[in-house]
Write a protein that binds this DNA or RNA. Structure first.
Length: 488
RNA sequence: CGGGGUGUAGCGCAGCCCGGUUAGCGCGUCUGUUUUGGGAACAGAAGGUCGCAGGUUCGAAUCCUGCCACCCCGACCA
């Protein structure tokens, strides 16, 4: 049991906070709702970001950057959009401070009031579509496939590190297309990119689905999502991709000349994932000893710890091991700091989730072996030095796969098919996880279930087969099962 | 915005009810020595606008008034 991390069983929320703080991922800041992402946490985010960026480029997207500040009037151009975001916008009203006459500090200079107030972007559809109007004249200008990495601000009432903070980092893709079909295909394609990223890189199994009208993005015609299941049985929306129809094109008057020389509004998508993925990562894999990071996104994949008293004799061997691993592209850290004792280091590196720990001392050197400890299972093994680097390379892959399998098994065990309301309530209260049940398709029933149980429809899975059934709440006919859960 | 709570060293807390030495304790930090195969031991040291502003008093961390901040629980959310 770790010395300074609350166990999941004792208090799951506190466990989460302890992991974030004690593993050096993030801190609270002086500003309410805003966090400081610390170097280690940012290092993991960088690996996630770099891989996603690569995948966006592979699918033909390019990066650009649009302003942080958006004229207030832009937001109201799209009715549903303003409805969805107005309540959480920070507003810039002045552009200058001055010294207070009584010397008590600085005050807002009332002379410096902006003619048009600016909002800090909660998302960038409006400012981007205002530019797209000028960029798009003809079908020859389409498609526009742009992504931006940015920070956004949504003034949240209650925040949790990574999961919901006022300011967060994300990427937002904004694309423009000639036809409805092409835009829908883009939204689906990017959902697939997210799903592949989550599964292959974060070892996080996700359900691909579409949102119900209640949960849809403000201004979208269809919202696709990937939903993941956390260890406490709560669901987490890990990414969304929206088919925006012509809503923003109409709001910002973005028309183009078609192939048959008519004028038509452009079809749009937007899609994003955020630092919230860090929260998903933590809650999917970590344990009571601390963070567990999948090898593919771990800033350090292997740490080598020598037993200090025999360090001089070990130095050469350690250097060789490290450079062998590096030459295979493995990210290695050697910790020869002799201030801390090995036992302390073992605990520290487990706490921050380094996938593999190598420990070597005089005994190993004599036997020609090294101690290999894997973080996911916490197993230790003595392994011959000969052929070590290929063994480690394979082990990293095995850990990656094991984390995925473990999470998938958890999700499978915590996805329950339910056909009666009694069962529904019972599973929700006593087991948690996803509940696969029939729903009559009305927002009213969804709302009623939410009020009665706090469970929402996470998504209608894309692979849900058509089957005749009865709504679990109202008994009305239904053709598909949807996934319910309590969600972050 | 409603309900509850907390502000004292970097972190976690005691002291406050019942005002009165130089405001303590644990962890961490620094120095030194011995250690080092699962979270080391000893010795010494540094570190404080007691959230802020008024008030009562000979005297306030402690009592009174006002304010501020943060946390937890509810309504909204990636």
């Amino acid at each position: 049991m770790s010395k300074d991390i609350t166990s999941r069983e004792a208090d799951y929320s506190q466990w989460y906070i302890d992991i974030v703080r004690k593993a050096g991922l993030a801190d609270y800041s002086a500003v309410k709702g805003c966090m400081v992402i610390k170097p280690y946490g940012f290092g993991i985010w960088e690996h996630m970001r770099d891989q996603l960026d690569k995948m966006f480029k592979q699918t033909g997207h390019v990066n650009a950057y649009f302003p942080l500040l958006i004229p207030k009037s832009f937001l109201s151009k799209e009715a549903a959009h303003v409805e969805g975001f107005a309540k959480e916008c920070a507003v810039v009203t002045h552009y200058r401070l001055k010294n207070a006459p009584d010397g008590s500090g600085v005050i807002v200079d009332p002379e410096a009031k902006l003619e048009e107030e600016l909002i800090i972007r909660p998302t960038s559809e409006t400012i981007i579509w205002d530019s797209y109007r000028d960029w798009i004249q003809s079908y020859r200008d389409l498609p526009v496939l742009i992504n931006q990495w940015a920070n956004v601000l949504r003034w949240e009432m209650r925040t949790r590190l990574f999961l919901r903070t006022a300011e967060f980092l994300w990427q937002e893709g904004h694309t423009a297309h000639e036809t409805r079909e092409e835009a829908i295909a883009e939204a689906e394609r990017m959902l697939d990119v997210y799903a592949r990223f989550a599964e292959e890189w974060m070892a996080l199994p996700v359900v691909r689905g579409v949102k119900t009208a209640n949960e849809r993005f403000a201004g979208a015609e269809e919202t696709y999502c990937i939903e993941a299941l956390m260890q406490d049985g709560w669901a987490l929306q890990a990414g969304t991709s929206h088919f925006l129809g012509q809503n923003f094109a109409k709001a910002f008057d973005v028309q183009f000349s078609t192939r048959n020389n008519s004028r038509e509004y452009v079809w749009a998508t937007s899609w994003g994932v955020s630092t919230r993925l860090m929260g998903a990562l933590i809650m999917a894999h970590s344990d009571d000893e601390g963070l567990v990071v999948p090898p593919r996104i771990a800033p350090t994949q292997v740490v080598i710890i020598p037993v200090p008293k025999s360090l001089p004799a070990l130095q050469e061997t350690i250097d060789t091991i490290a450079s062998d691993l590096q030459s295979l592209g493995i990210r290695v850290k050697v910790d020869s700091n002799d201030q801390d004792r090995p036992g302390f280091k073992f605990a520290e590196y487990e706490k921050i989730g380094i996938p593999i720990r190598l420990a070597i001392g005089a005994r190993d050197l004599e036997a020609g072996t090294i101690e290999v400890a894997r973080r996911d299972t916490r197993e230790k093994q003595s392994v011959p030095l000969a052929g070590l680097s290929t063994h480690i390379q394979a082990l990293l892959e095995e850990i990656q796969q094991n984390l995925y399998n473990r999470a998938l098994q958890f999700r499978t065990e915590h996805t329950t098919r339910v056909d009666t309301w009694e069962q529904f309530v019972d599973v929700l209260e006593n087991k948690g996880g996803f509940i696969s049940a029939h729903w009559d398709g009305t927002p009213e029933t969804e709302q009623q279930i939410k009020e009665e149980t706090k469970a929402t429809i996470r998504c209608i899975p894309l692979d849900a087969p058509t089957e005749a059934g009865q709504c679990v709440r109202t008994g009305k006919p239904s053709t598909k099962r949807v996934l319910f859960a309590r969600a972050y």
